[in-house]
Design a protein around this nucleic acid. Structure first.
Lengths: 192, 192
DNA sequence: GTAAAAACTTGATATAGATCAAGAGTGGGA
DNA sequence: TCCCACTCTTGATCTATATCAAGTTTTTAC
């Protein structure tokens, strides 16, 4: 499974053989079965995590017990709770596997060490953060300006393939609407 | 005005005299009068911009002509459109001054040069980006989970002082509700 | 200082989407 | 293979918030 991460690194950055090996030496492989937690509310998140296979969701649970999906992450993406990681504080989020999933983990100390030792790696990490921030901004913009139907259409055009692997209930939650509303929207748009 | 940015740098990072001077040598001071644009939709954003005084808003305008406020930035914060900057593409956003405002600008080439030359500066920039990302995540979470009233209360507790300098219409837009709704909420909560 | 333009408030009404409820598929585990 | 649990659909009703409209207050510009 590590090869997938290796390939990702090769695409995103230029590393010497020695640097590659240094990175690999810190990698922890982890497998999750469907429904298994990667992070549970109240725990402190301590890793940088890359998904090589599968799909994971990040969500909160409110006082009424309803779940609110914050994000989905699939293979070739990163996951985790940056706030908990940076502030060293208990997470408000849960992360669990939607499918059987495989990850490459780095403890944050090791990850920071790699960032310090390997400038190219550091640059890659910053570029990812930039893109994550831009994506978050766009999501905020969408939530402010779009109707429920537009949000759904925007979602499937931006993330084709997600709709087929992720239960509708979770997509509805991610988009900030009820499953019933999403079901009706799908019926509507199917007609057209 | 540059002293304010200088002070910010001293608080956030450790720089040698030479590094400080290098940074200052690239700084462009810019003043905006109330309502003046810093960035207009369709233009490509080319700077990294720090506010030393005043307040600025970032917003889009939809087909119907209504404005949607994406963010406010005040003194000691950064502003700009990262997506336009990174992708070198025309911006969807407008940025204009809510008050008379003063900024320190760096062209992005110079800014990147500084990041390369001065590791401490680069680290500071990355730390800011981390925090921006976390803030964006929290805003998404709030928009998914909170009612209009909760969004407002969350806003004023998170950004005390903003409510008194920013017109309510703009705050309403930022929170994703109409000015009428915000007005009623304020009346409600004033009672309690 | 005054007039015009914004910004804010308040009320009446409309509506997108939520909630509640019940039935229809669907899939994974014994 | 069957069944239980879960997901999805559909309908009826409800509600938070939007929209429309008019008046009031505050700010801006000359």
């Amino acid at each position: 499974m590590y090869e997938i991460f290796q390939k990702y690194l090769e695409e995103k950055t230029e590393l010497t053989q020695a640097e590659s090996e240094r990175i690999q030496s810190f990698a922890i492989i982890k497998k999750l079965r469907k429904r298994q937690y990667l992070l549970q509310e109240g725990d402190v998140w301590k890793y940088d995590a890359f998904i090589t296979k599968g799909c994971v969701r990040t969500y909160t649970v409110d006082e009424k017990g309803s779940e609110h999906v914050n994000s989905f992450s699939i293979e070739n993406w990163w996951t985790g709770d940056r706030e908990s990681l940076m502030m060293q504080q208990p997470s408000r989020f849960n992360i669990d596997a939607i499918e059987d999933t495989e990850l490459v983990l780095f403890t944050h100390e090791n990850f920071e060490l790699l960032c310090k030792e390997i400038p190219a790696f550091n640059n890659m990490v910053n570029a990812i953060l930039q893109r994550s921030f831009i994506a978050a901004q766009n999501r905020i913009q969408a939530s402010l300006t779009l109707t429920a139907e537009e949000k759904y259409l925007n979602f499937i055009s931006k993330y084709p393939g997600f709709a087929s692997r992720i239960p509708q209930t979770m997509i509805a939650s991610y988009l900030g609407m009820t499953p019933e509303t999403l079901s009706r929207i799908r019926k509507q748009t199917a007609k057209k």
